[in-house]
Simulated assay, not measured.
Amino acid sequence: MSLFHLTSLADVDAAEWDALLPDQQPFLRHAFLLALEESGSVRSESGWQPDHLLWRERGRLRAAIPGYRKRNSWGEYVFDHAWADACRRAGIGYYPKWLGAVPFSPVTGARVLGEAESAAQLLSALPETLHQHGLSSAHINFTDARGDALLQRQPDWLLRLGCQYHWHNRGYRDFQDFLDTLMSRKRKQLRKERETVAQSGFEFSWLRGDELREDQWDFVYTCYANTYAVRGQRPYLTRDFFSLLAARMPHSIRVAIAHLQGQPAAMAFCLTDGETLYGRYWGCLAEFDRLHFETCFYQGMEYAIAAGLKRFDAGAQGEHKLVRGFEPQLTTSWHYLTHPGLRDAVADFLQEEREGMRAWAIEARDALPYRRGDQ
């Protein structure tokens, strides 16, 4: 029984890796993670050095965690910048650290892959490997219920809660059927927002990954990169990533393109596993009133209804999603800190933060637009 560190997913057979996955969610698939590496979207120069953990027994892969050595905290969506800053002020090294996650993807899912017993052995061996490789800590982000149960049984791991907002398709016949479940005032707001975009002349089309030409992928990337450029930042993903993913996982990709007077003007890039639509990236060439809401939210909701999908995960954060029917959903991450003083301080902070997150998730439901009683 051995724990291996893998610096590229190309060094493990795709079928062997994918056999560990518990469902069809695209983010953990060998093709998705390898596309991030081969496109240069994750690399040591950007602070994302692949360091996948594999647990083998008698030569057979039994458990794994997709992982990265990090020299910054960008692109994680579980924010520990304050912890790093406290370490800097106290003269404690925080970087490099190890992160178990899907880069740039704040999506809950399997993180500790494989058979439960082997996965538990991998987790038990992880703290020692931190010391051996000079890593300050281990973090596993956006875990599912099975991962939570495994990590809860490991000593000294700290639980952190976050909150996202997901929309649920409760068997709606169409978008109007959904609107009929809302309070009158909120229903009018959503209808007015959609009418504003329609009256501006926008038309939308949905395409699978194998239906887009390379010039259309150029447009998708230009829109995606523009969301970073307007903030003076560089995009995480490279242009090559989109072409690689389209070649390897075309049927997982859905792209909504907004056309104005026959010309593409905005897009939303999504992935699907047959049950959930995952809204990942959006962008536009120019700002238009309410176009963001239509492209990122209402188009995805309407598509989910038409395709019979159960859920629409439109991305991290965004309390403005509540008034559009997206319900609060607690997320989990786990953290192992080797420095005892830091661990104690973070443990105290997380206890208070968890209480606040649970209270907020309950309070946020009061902002949902659904009818109550005679409304």
Rank of each mutant, 00 (worst) to 15 (best):
E353G: 15
C163D: 00
P106R: 06
P66R: 06
A347R: 12
R58W: 10
L28H: 13
W334N: 08
L6M: 13
E302G: 11
F4I: 14
R153W: 01
S124H: 12
L53C: 05
D215F: 03
L322Q: 10
L123A: 14
S243V: 01
R254Y: 03
P369H: 07
A306C: 01
W334V: 06
A314L: 07
A258H: 03
L151F: 07
S39K: 04
L291R: 02
L9I: 07
W167N: 08
E115N: 15
R234P: 00
R62V: 04
P103N: 07
C284S: 12
Q199K: 13
D13Y: 14
V102R: 11
N226Y: 14
L337M: 05
I305S: 05
G93V: 10
L368H: 08
L122H: 07
L34C: 08
M1F: 11
Q49F: 05
F297D: 00
F293L: 09
Y68I: 00
E287C: 09
R354V: 04
Q121C: 11
F269R: 08
G308W: 04
G279H: 04
Y298P: 03
W48G: 06
S184V: 04
D289I: 12
T129A: 14
I140H: 14
L61H: 12
I140Y: 08
G325E: 02
G59E: 02
S243A: 07
P328K: 06
D11S: 13
Y172H: 02
G209D: 06
V42E: 04
E38A: 10
K321F: 00
Q152P: 07
D156H: 15
F219G: 06
W360G: 02
H335E: 00
K70H: 02
F4W: 13
D344H: 15
W334F: 11
R173F: 08
G209N: 03
Q216W: 05
L151W: 00
C163I: 13
K70V: 01
L126F: 10
D313F: 05
P103H: 05
Y95N: 05
G59N: 07
Y77F: 12
Y336C: 15
T338S: 03
W282C: 13
Y165S: 11
W74D: 13
V197K: 14
Y236H: 00
R56C: 05
R71V: 06
D80Q: 15
A35F: 13
V346E: 04
T272P: 15
A145Y: 12
R62M: 04
H168W: 15
L368M: 01
E45W: 11
F4Q: 12
R254Q: 03
H30Q: 09
F312K: 05
H292A: 11
D218V: 02
R290T: 01
A31N: 14
D18R: 12
